[in-house]
């Protein structure tokens, strides 16, 4: 095993735990924007398209495939962040969410 792989695996595992730690306490309301936001972040694959096309990209078919990959990645990033922003904009300037204790809840359980 190369040391690059070992380092990268360490990064991979730690990033996984960071993902768990950051995400696990999100109010229900923000689940859709959160899904959309994380969706935009995996648009990071556009970097891979840029690197592969920029550094090699021999042959017409390869170039064409990579251009499509960059188009896809860009749509993922740009669209993802914008649509998340639009969704979140709707929560802006709203009164602060208040946690009110439920009134008279003794009879409702079944």
């Amino acid at each position: 095993m190369s040391s690059t792989l070992v380092t990268n695996l360490a990064i991979l595992v730690l990033a996984g735990f960071v993902g768990f730690a950051v995400i696990s306490k999100v109010p229900n309301t923000l689940h859709t924007p959160l899904m959309s936001g994380t969706n935009a972040i995996h648009g990071i694959v556009v970097l891979a398209g840029l690197i592969v096309l920029g550094l090699s990209g021999d042959g017409v078919l390869n170039k064409a495939l990579l251009v499509v990959a960059i188009i896809f990645g860009t749509i993922n990033v740009v669209g993802g962040f914008l649509v998340t922003d639009r969704m979140l904009g709707m929560f802006k300037s709203k009164p602060e969410p208040k946690e009110k204790p439920p009134e008279d809840s003794q009879s409702g359980k079944s």
Binding site: T4, L5, N8, L9, I11, L12, A15, G16, F17, V18, G19, F20, V22, I23, S24, H31, L34, M35, T38, N39, I41, H42, I44, V45, L47, A48, I51, V52
Partner: peptide
């Protein structure tokens, strides 16, 4: 996985965070 293949930390970290958060959600 693409990040591992290309040795690109940005892809590894961002991809894995999405993988973890998506699994929780």
């Amino acid at each position: 996985a693409t990040g591992i293949a290309l040795d690109n930390t940005a892809l590894i970290v961002a991809g894995m965070i999405v993988g973890a958060s998506g699994t929780i959600l």
